[in-house]
Amino acid sequence: MDLQIALLLGQDGITNGAIYALLALALVLVFAVTRVIFIPQGEFVAFGALTLASLQAGKLPGTVWLLLAMGTLIAVIESSLALRERRFREIPLLLMVNCGAPLLLAGTLFAISPASLPLPVQVLLALMLVVPLGPMIYRLAYQPVAEASVLVLLIVSVAMHVTLIGIGLLFFGAEGSRTPPFTDVTFEIGDALLQGQTILVMVASVLLIVALYFFFERTIYGKALRATAMNRTGARLMGISGNLAGMLSFTLAAAIGAFSGILISPLTTIYYDSGFLIGLKGFVGAIIGGLASYPVAAAGAILVGLLESYSSFHASAFKEVIVFTLIIPVLLWRSLTTRHVEEG
């Protein structure tokens, strides 16, 4: 292996690692706030990328129907609750947010032809379609069991993952898609070409991480999430609603997932079931961070990306064996150095 190959592999590992890092951040965030191990995180990657690809192909993405269906379901549940509790004034707002907004979005998609729009608008549309699914999933699947054990929440996640995979196959078919790159710029380093898109992935990841940092440090919602993560009961006593915090964290997770998908879909082909393995590797990063520390989780995720890249060069058939076996000593080291407090 000469230097050039080593550099190329390193670059590849860091690009993938950057995506894993984003997902790791989202997983840490969701877990810290809600105790949910959000296995369907990966599905948002696939949904984001494939929704964008559908828009570009001039097709109506299936996620529209999902959004409409879930919105209606929530509207029905919330309205009946409001009716029972005689909170009549809230009903119009409920209907508007949960049914009206998705309908408006669907109507817009019908009226205009998304394929002819400029790329940034398409990306925005795709995000608008996918991101609301996050809080909706929280409302429907997790909020009713928000107080259950981590194990039960995990199993709900597994069930949600199974459902979303099925929905993905139904909406997008078994074959994958790619989207055109945001930029065609290439750089030459020695003999090798460096794609602009690769750099874009890294820059965007870093920017997103910085943005999250400011969100948590500077904004009231960010602080509310941190408070909930530190102590749920305490936060509640301070007037921070657990449900609101949950919804907010799921919105962020969905946004990060969908955005990651849109970032990498010009570099690789995304399938309806791509998300699981990508999410799993993000999860590995998150765990290395102890499901608590953002910087360590990001570092862990980049480590996974690098391990993967170098092992795919040396023994591609055994790539996963190598990656996952090497994870164990890292876990052991982390486990012994992290002061672990047992939860009650």
Partner: peptide
């Protein structure tokens, strides 16, 4: 693998 996002190493 079918769902690999990168085959740069190979």
């Amino acid at each position: 693998n079918r769902s690999d996002t990168s085959v740069t190493g190979q």
